[in-house]
Design a protein around this nucleic acid. Structure first.
Length: 130
RNA sequence: CCGGAAGGGUGGAGAAUCGCUCCUGGCCGUGAAAGCGGGCAGGGGAGGAAAGUCCGAACACCAUAGGGCGCGAUGCCGCGUAACCUGCGGGCCGACGCAAGAAGGUGCUGCGGGAUACACGCGGAGGACGACGCCGCGAGGCGUCUCCAUGGAAAGUGCCACAGAAAACAAACCGCCCGCUGGGAUUUCAAAAUUUGAGAUCUCAGAUGGGUAAGGGUGAAAAGGUGGAGUAAGAGCCCACCGCUCCGGGCGCAAGCACGGAGGCAUGGCAAACCCCAUCGGGUGCAAGGCCAAAUAGGGGACCUUGGAGCGGCCCGCUCCAUGUUUCGCGAAAGCGAGAUGGGUUCCGGGUACUGGCUGCUGAGACAAAUGAUUCUCUCCUCGGCCGCGGCAACGCGGUCGAGCAGACAGAAUUCGGCUUACAACCCUUCCGGAACC
RNA sequence: GUGGCUAUAGCUCAAUGGUAGAGCCCCAGAUUGUGGUUCUGGUUGUUGCGGGUUCGAGUCCCGUUGGCCACC
């Protein structure tokens, strides 16, 4: 019970947003905030459910390799911090062109400042990757 | 020794923690079951270009897929090559049948065929411009390098700027030659007294008649060329040679080749201008297409009469809709699934591409789209310092210390072959440039 | 996966295979006390890149690079 499954840092397929109507609903009706190389849209979910993530990388930020790299970094950042939110939410992260060439630490710093500005994080701890 | 360019090859290894996806096999919870949720173990998990989508093929569906016209593409000859399709034989399975047998199937196996035209590669032939070399008095010939989308210019139309006389039915501006007319000079003869007439030679001119195409500085290209004979001047008019065209049999699988004979020579270039000839091409693309639970709107299929509409560029053919009869399941997204056994590679044999044999190793399958994040170690390599060795030197090699620390291009999306483009570092081959020494 | 458009002066665009041009911009001069306007003159180019056809390519053909757009 101490290492209960709620704190495991998993990120499986059902933790992703997969439907186009979910994407359009979150990006039209949800909250929106920009920080660094990330644009975030989110909708809060009822307590007890799992947070979900969707990542958008348009063709303006680079070729396929750059886009895949950005998608993996954003997903990894969400995976590490998925239990640090005050309440579960549906989150859509949109990568901006300045993400090309960034490292994991830069992306994580942008993500944390964005979540602090939005007031989504628990105030107690801030765990980091590694 | 250093630097550069082009082509080809390789495109780091190991480990830990946390994760993703697929396959196989258990486990737990729930449930009558199917299933759903959770979790464990083992195994697999990007490239030489996966890219661009430039070319071709397979595969799938569509009935405007058929026929004709149009349109598009391709165009010397031979050989070789993929996925995939397919023929015959053997083995195995096998509905059905009492049995014998047997429709059929097969990710098994042997021998083939196709994979076109027009992907592409290799070899050959021919041609072109330019360069170089050799031979010839010359026109030209031969060889090497480079390049070639290489059917037809004697079916037709069109174009060939500027320059030039002329740019394509040859023509005739200058020129040359023979005449005609007029003038001038010289000279001969005659008459007569310094003039006239006639003739000859030379020369000038023409709103002049013919001959000729040798020459004319142009042009990318000037109507076969070089040399001679010949002529009033000239000309394939004639002759020799060179080139060209046609014919003949021979050689070669063929493209073609060389030889012999004939023809005085026509037929300028452009078809990557229209066009003609030959050959090929239906269209759309795995988002092709197939199956399907629940819920929901109400419709869907078949047949036939009549009417209306449409038709991928056009026509013929054709298709659709409404109405009528009959019948019962149809259906977008989501889900399942199309979807990977075909190959790659080591070794040996034969070849121009390539191919045969045998053994071993390897084996991606997502769908808002996995193959990741962080860290450590090892080498490869780069830069700098010091030391040693080699060298005249430029510089190289080795050791050690420090820093950078796998550094580039780049991410499967139905499959296969080709083409093109991008590429750090290292290796190989060829070429170019520079420095030092002999 | 499929289809299309486009690249010409600093900018926007022209140009039958035959000397690449117009407007704006820029520069110089004139006009004005100064500036603007106006007038006159001038500079502007590897026609994206590499090949090929042709006597000769911005144009024709092939390849290639970049940009833009559309469809399922």
């Amino acid at each position: 019970m101490a290492e209960e499954p709620t704190t495991r840092l998993r990120f499986r397929r059902n933790a992703r947003i997969r439907l186009g109507k979910d994407f359009s609903r979150i990006r039209q009706k949800g909250e929106r905030l920009v920080a660094g190389c990330i644009i975030a849209n989110w909708i809060p979910l009822p307590a007890g459910s799992h947070s979900r993530l969707g990542v958008v990388t348009s063709s303006k930020i680079g070729n396929a390799t750059v886009r895949a790299r950005a998608r993996r970094l954003l997903r990894e950042t969400f995976r590490v911090h998925q239990h640090d939110f005050v309440r579960p939410l549906d989150l859509v992260l949109v990568a901006r062109p300045s993400i090309a060439g960034r490292k994991m630490q830069d992306v994580e710093r942008d993500f944390l400042t964005l979540c602090k500005k939005a007031g989504l994080l628990k105030k107690t701890e801030s765990r980091s990757c590694g």
